[in-house]
Nucleic acid binder design. Structure first.
Lengths: 383, 383
DNA sequence: TAGGCTTATGTTAGCGCTGCCATCATCATC
DNA sequence: GATGATGATGGCAGCGCTAACATAAGCCTA
């Protein structure tokens, strides 16, 4: 360890008080609107604490009615060229920033979409969010993100809080929710897209693929390649219904396709999805089920950790043991050996969900609101 | 390729119209509030389009005033046990979800924090977001996320839109912004934390580390280890000021520490930060600057791509060429060989920024609002 | 030139909530 | 028993904006 950067923490109580914000910047600001300073005669002093510029201020400055300013912003085609010009100048000169909370309240549209995901830092969901944003942002919608950390109890609380913001649409990962969550979402009358899995009983719309079928296909693949002793490894924490579905699919498939073969599953419990856990899962597999000839991981991340560990230990893949992953992350086609896995349309889940929501929110007809985006088994060197 | 999941797209106009949401769920809903359906005598029909339950509905149901319901939610300690109980029941029975837009408007606090980041899918920022959320969520704040895609023009537009939601705090990556963006943020009078770099002229607060010093330390490290011909590789697109700062630091350090040595930089331009680009950068380095004995990447992702490519080609690390990264991603300590890199407090940037914002938003005094969290060079096998 | 149509702007009344104050009952204090 | 302090609740107005209607001016047609 060379070079250690300076560090200087220290928060919470101390001497220096909050400063900084009150700098009263450049030339273009502050109309002469003397509100907020008890002007004397009025029946009661106004409540405006922050002396921000309002639509009315802009209207006065441009010598038009507030409504005209509102129109200039929301539907400029209804306003004459001349007036529009004046209003625009006033907006620039006053530094007006519309208060969307007020707009939301008055118009009953928030121009937001709420996204409920298990974890922001999981790249698969980040990809989907990216896709969502890509579609919604140009249409003027903003994304509200909440993460559940795979805790169903937290999900309900979160959904409740997000609904409080009156989003125009909701994107939620997973198709299994608590009864209350489902009820809340149904009652909200807001377009909802459930993602990442399929279900017979959607709240509204679904965009995903069958986690069960994907694993079945992978087991089928193992059969075709002649592997005799498959083991499944992953972390199956209570709230991660997709991982649990995959595990169930593995068990069923093995029963069906490997009659007589014992069902081997290695579970890391609540461990995070990272390379380290992949190594540990490999380790546990090798000691617990040394007969394993194909080790199927519930995520490419685990698989990658295992592949790297094998490289370190000199275990040959697929010679000594074959390895498969799930997700087709970018790393998988760069590993040595490259990783056999299941490709899943992460990004596309986001974009398609976004388009679906957009159609719903603008009351455009939607042909199909239960979309199976499919998956594909990607055969590479590791199996 | 085996097993191809079914797919069934098709959006936009078609026959079937929007259905689904209007299921009028379980037993516990709908008070007898006959609004929304022109009731006849009133001077004008009300505007309430969605017949959602309001605070007034709950109040009527509980036979108390709206104010008491509001209090029961926001400061229950002011309400008697008996009343509280009744109100809580009414809330549950009516399925009331508070409208936070109205609350925001009336109270002038939105209980939201806006986060402006270059890209959601970049794991470093996802980590910071995670940290932010971890701190803000328990305090009741929600996160509004906007991504700029490294386009400064987009940043301004985004900040404007986010300010429209009247966040109580703002987290923004980077310390270099357009004059307009800076002006907007200053004028907003909202606590702002700029992150991921340091600056002499912050808008308000800063939490980060010196990208320049980090690279200098790394070059210094290269000197100590006896490397003679360093090359820097990365993608330095226009809006990524941190990458550009690192590049500049590399150039300056080489001038200082390797007098007479030419400055070797390989630039992949606007290429995305992924393993593939890392491989290409390695390739370009080997052909353009074959004399390179230590190749320093602007990100661990590039470095990992290069390390894997070397494994494939049989290039020995650090024997034939030494490699360093930046960021200390999880993969770096699992690669073979493990990667020498610079550890940067991603997650911590988020948590510290969150605490800072929280202090500011609750008007607690803050001792130091310019925090250098430091970095550390992590020496591993690859160099 | 009256009547209707179109276009541009203004007026009014809330959207659902909370800040501020007023009110009223209860209790301790002198 | 009058006084004030305390606790619990209600009334009123207004946050900043927009839907819905009203109005005014210009234009066309017969």
């Amino acid at each position: 360890m060379t070079g250690e950067g300076r560090a200087a923490l220290a928060l919470d109580d101390g001497g220096v008080t909050d400063a900084g914000a009150g700098l009263e910047g450049g030339a273009s600001s502050s109309v002469g609107v003397g509100v907020g300073v008890g002007v004397g005669s009025g029946p009661r002093q106004t409540r405006r604490s922050t002396n921000t510029v309002t639509l009315t201020d802009v209207a006065q400055h441009a010598r038009v009615s507030p409504q005209t300013v509102s129109r200039s912003i929301r539907s400029p085609e209804l306003v004459s060229e001349f007036t529009l010009e004046r209003v625009r100048n006033s907006i620039a000169e006053t530094g007006y920033v519309p208060n969307l909370a007020a707009s939301n309240l008055a118009s009953n549209r928030s121009m937001t979409v709420a996204a409920v995901i298990p974890a922001v830092s999981a790249s698969v969901f980040a990809d989907a969010l990216h896709g969502l944003e890509e579609v919604l942002s140009p249409a003027g919608y903003q994304l509200f993100i909440g993460s559940t950390d795979y805790r169903p109890s937290h999900e309900e609380e979160l959904v409740r809080a997000l609904l409080g913001r009156r989003p125009d649409g909701i994107f939620i990962v997973g198709t299994k929710h608590s009864p209350n969550t489902t009820h809340l979402l149904r009652e909200s009358r807001v377009p909802v897209v459930e993602a990442w899995d399929l279900t017979d009983d959607p709240i509204d719309s679904v965009v995903g693929f069958s986690n069960r079928d994907a694993i079945s296909a992978l087991v089928q693949f193992a059969v075709t390649r002649g592997y005799a002793h498959p083991t499944f490894a992953g972390s199956f924490q209570t709230g991660d219904f997709r991982a649990i579905a995959r595990r169930g699919a593995f068990e069923d498939s093995v029963r069906e396709l490997y009659p007589g073969e014992p069902i081997r599953v290695v579970d890391s419990g609540t461990a995070t999805v990272d390379f380290e856990t992949g190594r540990r899962l490999l380790d546990e597999t090798l000691t617990t089920y040394p007969e394993t000839d194909v080790l199927m991981f519930a995520s490419d991340v685990f698989a990658a950790g295992a592949v790297l560990e094998c490289a370190r230990r000199g275990i040959r893949i697929p010679g000594d043991i074959a390895i498969t992953g799930f997700g087709d992350f970018e790393i998988s086609r760069h590993l040595v050996p490259t990783l056999t896995t299941v490709a899943v349309p992460n990004r596309q889940i986001g974009t398609i969900a976004g388009e679906l929501l957009l159609a719903r929110m603008t009351h455009r007809p939607v042909e199909n609101s239960e979309l199976d985006l499919g998956f594909s088994v990607v055969a590479r060197e590791s199996a």
